[in-house]
Design a protein around this nucleic acid. Structure first.
Lengths: 255, 255
DNA sequence: CGGCAAGTTGAGCCAGGTCAACTCCGGTGG
DNA sequence: CCACCGGAGTTGACCTGGCTCAACTTGCCG
């Protein structure tokens, strides 16, 4: 086998197969070098990336599934600070400060622990690859900013509406539609949005009753009234409280 | 004047004067090139970085003061999604998607709009500078993750305690002490933590009454019981509800 | 088909939001 | 130097969105 042959594990991996993602930016030599010194990993729901393992493999690239960063409070309350999905790259080098959340899989997750040395080398030499990871990190940061804004002052219904748009934005790249995949369970969603599973359930129900969306299953919804959902997400009280009495369809002027 | 002379504006700027910050990593040539093609800016409270200006100058480095990213809801509710302070670098290239928050000064802010071309060039060539900005962006992202976790499920008192530690962490670099500077007004703090100014006020009062901190002024506090404040920040209900009746001083076992 | 976690529904209650009144403080002008 | 002003901060009283707890149903996996 020639030493530049691309490994099977890479051919099967979306980080390489999707031309917008990190590994697709690498030269064959770079990819093989990286591949040789990196390790793939499969996780199932509840599996945690342990600190010890992260010390040796602090750089993690997600191939598929949803990985969460969770913060556990002393009395058992849990929160999910962020979701990481296909294409996201986490750099945990020297992130020992504070109570960095635990990284826990929310379902089947496949990921690749990248060699820090090769990663650093690629980052220094390959401008295209550098751009991709820089923009990915920036997206993570801005997504977190948006999310902070969402959960700080919005009401339950508004948070859920915002979340549905967040899902929509993420999968936009993979083909836009009003059929939105909800890649996490209700219970995880509740922890991400800072509310109770009961409240999440009631809010979904409410949106359905108003004819704004239809549940296809627990894992997918179809938006049937995008503008109205957008107005709810943007905190328009006239619709979010449903005070117009007509199923929230009527459009009121904005003060 | 030799063309490599460092400009006065740079000598006065902490981004250069602080050896850990971005401009201090540059060679004299790089710094002069960057300086020539960049523009400093002073802002006062309420000033906004307009979209139009950001289109031309999408990269902003903070020299001093506090810049906020604010989201405005349609009915007037405001939230502050993030604070940016000395050393933070914002890259807003191609961040037109979604409702990116407005960038608004919370006091006197001095910043430098960097030339995207030179920034990109430095990022590609200067490994030390690249490391600094990469770590800065990563810190921004992790800070945002922490913040999301904080405001999602914590109660008011716990959020405030967490925020005080966030302030402490930020100024740790500049000399550690229990005297913590609160660099923003109560009203901004309320918007950042997703609560009302009234509630912020009540929580400060509460912490003082329990002997956990002393207000030096509106802009600074001294922590007098760090472990207890930490336990509150970590969501220990036994202390945060004050149910032990002894001013919250008594240490209870953790379940 | 059994077992269990996830999700839903209902009833009651409380942390913190809301509103209104008041105080404090820095800046401004006579 | 003081009177004035306006925004920020504080305090108190009241009220409500969503948390809590408990019971029930659904869906998934072996």
């Amino acid at each position: 086998m020639p030493e530049t042959a691309i490994k099977d594990k890479c051919k099967r991996c979306m980080l390489y197969a999707d031309s917008r993602l990190f590994c697709a930016q690498l030269s064959e030599d770079e990819l093989c070098e990286l591949s040789d010194r990196s390790r793939t990993l499969s996780m199932k729901r509840g599996d945690t990336l342990e600190d010890e393992a992260l010390a040796h493999w602090p750089i993690v690239a997600i191939d598929g599934g949803v990985l969460s960063m969770q913060h556990l409070l002393q009395d058992g309350r849990k929160t999910i600070a962020a979701f990481f999905m296909r294409g996201d790259i986490l750099d945990l080098r020297n992130v020992t400060n504070r109570n960095r959340g635990a990284l826990i899989a929310l379902g089947k997750v496949s990921l690749c622990r990248l060699s820090p040395a090769v990663f650093e080398q690629v980052m220094a030499q390959n401008a295209k690859a550098q751009k991709v990871i820089w923009e990915n990190l920036r997206d993570q940061a801005f997504r977190a900013f948006d999310h902070s804004g969402d959960i700080a002052k919005k009401q339950a219904l508004e948070k859920l509406a915002s979340f549905i748009f967040e899902c929509r934005n993420r999968q936009e790249h993979f083909g836009k539609t009003e059929l939105i995949e909800i890649p996490v369970r209700r219970i995880d969603l509740a922890e991400y949005l800072g509310m109770q599973p009961e409240t999440v359930s009631r809010c979904f129900k409410d949106l359905e009753k108003r004819g704004i969306l239809e549940a296809q299953s627990l894992g997918a919804v179809r938006i049937t009234n995008v503008p109205l959902l957008r107005r709810i997400a943007n905190g328009d009280k006239d619709v979010s409280t449903g005070r117009d009495g007509e199923g929230g369809i009527k459009i009121l002027k904005i003060a």
